[in-house]
Nucleic acid binder design. Structure first.
Length: 283
DNA sequence: ATCCAGTCGA
DNA sequence: TCGACTGGAT
């Protein structure tokens, strides 16, 4: 398959999808170019399914409608809104990034992916997706759906394919795209094709970067989450260390795990997910 | 059990 | 380069 045939395949399918096809218009972040809103959506969508992000996205933008309001948010309110999305540290990174852009960039988003990548929580994917959807950047990027599309069309039957190889093809596809096709539309088309037509084909196992995820239930991180949720449930933000440790130890005993309360609390402190005073833990 | 619009620190 | 991070849906 040539690049030109590939482009036509994807775009024809996207512009004229079969009945019951992608529900792409229902995604609110596809109807804005506000870099702040797009950043929020991209960070929420990291390793998180669309259906779970949709309600949280609206709730989050209701609570923190712009960069300044997020930069000024308390951690407790931030985490309360984030609860249920998982990967708590993404919320802290998002706030930190809002503060950095407010303070060091006069509240204006840089457009260069290389600069966006320097902010916490923004890696190669998010930097380029944000630059594309907010500013029309034509730099290639891969997520799990787009990777699947390229593996299917350009690396059939090959194993251990690196992202570097895929990105070379992906960039060529963008560079040779007709100029009247926007980077936004092209990447929406790739997302939707990978997520619907190629769904459930285990194609990504042929990526060099594929690896299985470990179980959540009973895991170390499940107890980290229990602590954060316990602190969130407290009426005040400060809870005596003794009390937190006791609650956690009871939980660990009940679940018969090898983990100690102290190592769980230390790991949360290290990640700055919780903080402590001399006598209390707080968010 | 497996996956999801990935990123970070070691 | 690799393990850890999160939680709900299928």
């Amino acid at each position: 398959m040539t690049i030109a045939q590939f482009q036509k395949n994807i775009l024809d399918w996207y512009r004229n999808p079969p009945a019951g096809g992608a529900m792409r218009s229902r995604m609110p972040w596809r109807r804005t170019r506000d870099p702040y809103k797009i950043l929020v959506s991209e960070v929420m969508l990291q390793q998180t399914q669309i259906a779970r992000v949709l309600p949280k996205y609206k709730e989050f933008l209701g609570a923190f409608p712009d960069l300044a309001s997020l930069a000024a948010a308390t951690d407790k309110r931030l985490l309360k809104v984030w609860a249920g999305l998982g990967y708590w540290r993404r919320a802290k990174y998002l706030k930190k990034t809002a503060q950095l852009i407010t303070n060091n960039y006069n509240g204006k988003f840089p457009k260069d992916p290389k600069i966006l990548e320097t902010f916490p929580g923004i890696g190669p994917y998010t930097a380029r997706a944000l630059a594309c959807f907010a500013f029309g950047s034509r730099e290639a990027f891969l997520d799990t759906n787009i990777r699947r599309v390229y593996l299917h069309f350009f690396f059939p039957r090959r194993k251990n394919v690196s992202d570097k190889e895929i990105l070379r093809v992906a960039q060529r596809a963008i560079d040779t795209l007709p100029k009247n096709v926007s980077s936004r539309e092209w990447h929406y088309a790739l997302f939707d094709y990978g997520a619907t037509v190629l769904k459930d084909k285990q194609i990504n196992r042929r990526s060099r970067h594929y690896h299985k995820q470990s179980k959540f239930e009973g895991s170390f991180r499940s107890f980290r989450t229990a602590v954060v949720q316990y602190l969130l449930s407290q009426p005040q933000n400060r809870t005596p260390q003794k009390k937190v440790r006791h609650v956690l130890e009871e939980l660990l005993k009940k679940e018969k795990t090898p983990y100690s309360a102290q190592e769980i609390l230390d790991s949360l402190l290290k990640d700055r997910l919780i903080k402590k005073s001399r006598t209390h833990y707080y968010l």
